[in-house]
Design a protein around this nucleic acid. Structure first.
Lengths: 334, 334
DNA sequence: CTGTTAGCGCTTTCAT
DNA sequence: ATGAAAGCGCTAACAG
């Protein structure tokens, strides 16, 4: 039913080969032939069949995006940028959530291979389990990691410098006179938080301050309870807090409220990740904002360059700096 | 280089046809042959080539999702559900943002056709310009609309009842004794807001109340300014406000703060769309929560049924009810 | 500059 | 139950 290249060629009175050359302008075609082909294609309403093209040429022009959860704001915004940039270059973006499970990551990668996807942009589910990603790359798929660097493993990576993020957050508080800082994180070995914690802790110690580490777990309610306990019991009470991700920020604010303390007056707070509502909290949150759009843009561009063979140099390891946005939740220590 | 069906067939000492039958269990294959084929496939590490399969069978098992902006929380969460549910059924989800522009919607639909995608889940960019969607459906692609119903145009739709949403929000406020309600929205003819505004307005009038319509525009700052003006000048001051989407909520809260008024005490507020931070605002926001996951789940299931031919009945028009979650931003009129 | 010829890897009649 | 053969629609050598 659909119009094929063959139909166009017949209508234009040329061979399929010539029609293909005219349509995709490569090789050489006489002006006359080209014109007739283009006209025939337009008249018949011809549309390239990308599937046939892909099978024959071995290139599906589809890039996969595999974050932990495509529904999370950080990854969703990246997906938006990725799809826009890739589309301009003629690629399509396919997405899945890995749920931070290596097993799912693996199975999705298999299905990618079956679908001949030439590129994968992934937020690796695990720091150490990445042989499947390396193997994928060795077999010829372009792989770009975001959020967690795998550059040491030979995989292009676009991340934010989480160590610096932690250090910068701490430095801000230290500059305000705080000396005992509470670092609030879910668990010891998940995602980007360990680096953030290390960065903050070292900055605090270097300034002669005291680190109060609060490992609160990954569940909102439990985390709130734990933070409450620690805040209430602590003999060396922190005067400032750094919750290391969005969930911890929620738990921390909830805890502060339960204890009837006030942000800024009783406790300074630097959160991670900006958010439209962060500005509307009372007081508005001082945050470390990750350059989300930048990461998406870079990842897409790098991917395109790798796929087009415009770039064949060593593995790229871009670390962006998070930006401190000072608003109202941090104040001089009183 | 990659292992093909041919290799497997050869290794198992059968024809390609038999190998295919064994691998995809259809037709009839003797137990012995089947076993040998399966073993050969496993030994050689055979993986189906979906592209070839798609070209030959005409089914790519790829569903496209085309929201206004995949980076927006509402759509991102839906994407997450969609990809999970579709994957279980062996489909892949491809996404793009239409930027609410019909033109982009059209061009993406073309590229879908070229890629032989059998299904589209779309948040229509426009209420009236939808012939391209109808045409797509007529040509055999399964189309499901979300967020805005196109059921009258013959396209399956899963939406929330925005009229009821507006009415329910207003009813809550009316029950609290409010009589003059401010309805805050960006513009007259964008997305789901007109229905919400109508629903709220009619509920208010039916209760003998007064509607203060505040059309604030689509830009956050400008909207804030306009809301400030209207709130300050209005001779018949509203005692409660309903901002009709997330952006309007932000603008409204900013405006209230600028005017040094207090939510709940001076003005009651019902926002649309729940949000983890809504609970952390002071006071926590009373909201109309849309059943996001439900919509995603329904859209995916319906799409699968249509694609598998398990459902061939009339056009589906599912309207979910948004849920009122009462928190602290609404109070009895004083 | 253009046509012919082979397939890409798979499914699907149609015989056997 | 199985095999042979014919493509799906396109690209890419290779001739001419």
């Amino acid at each position: 039913m659909p119009v094929t290249l063959q139909d166009v060629a017949a209508a234009a009175g040329v061979s399929q080969a010539t029609a293909a050359r005219a349509l995709n302008n490569y090789g050489s075609v006489s002006a006359g032939a080209k014109e007739r082909v283009l006209k025939a294609a337009a008249d018949l309403g011809y549309e390239t069949n990308h599937v046939a093209q892909a099978l024959r040429s071995g290139n599906t022009r589809t890039v996969n995006f595999l974050p932990g959860n495509i529904g999370a704001p950080f990854f969703a915004r990246i997906a938006h940028i990725l799809s826009g940039t890739l589309e301009e270059a003629g690629y399509v973006l396919a997405v899945s959530s890995s749920y931070e499970q290596v097993e799912r990551e693996r199975s999705i990668i298999e299905s990618m291979r079956a679908r001949m996807s030439p590129g994968l942009i992934v937020a690796p589910a695990h720091r150490d389990l990445h042989e499947h990603l390396q193997r994928l790359q060795q077999r010829g798929t372009a792989v770009v990691a975001i959020d967690r660097s795998l550059a040491e493993r030979g995989i292009d990576s676009i991340t934010v410098d989480n160590y610096a993020l932690g250090a910068d957050a701490a430095a801000h508080l230290i500059a305000l006179g705080h000396r005992t800082l509470g670092l609030i994180y879910d668990s010891d070995d998940i995602g980007s938080t360990p680096d953030r914690v290390r960065g903050a802790a070292e900055a605090i110690r270097a300034a002669g301050g005291t680190v109060v580490a609060i490992q609160a777990g990954t569940d909102l309610e439990m985390a709130t309870t734990r933070i409450c306990e620690r805040l209430a019991l602590s003999s060396s009470e922190p005067t400032a807090l750094i919750p290391m991700d969005a969930l911890m920020t929620e738990a921390t604010i909830a805890a502060i409220r339960q204890l009837d303390l006030r942000i800024r007056t009783d406790l300074s707070l630097v959160a991670v990740d900006d958010h439209s509502l962060a500005r509307l909290l009372d007081p508005p949150l001082t945050v470390m904002a990750q350059p989300v759009d930048q990461i998406g843009e870079d990842a897409a561009r790098l991917m395109i360059q790798r796929l087009e063979g415009e770039r064949t140099d060593e593995v790229v390891d871009l670390r962006h700096r998070a930006e401190l946005i000072v608003r109202g939740s941090t104040a001089l220590r009183n």
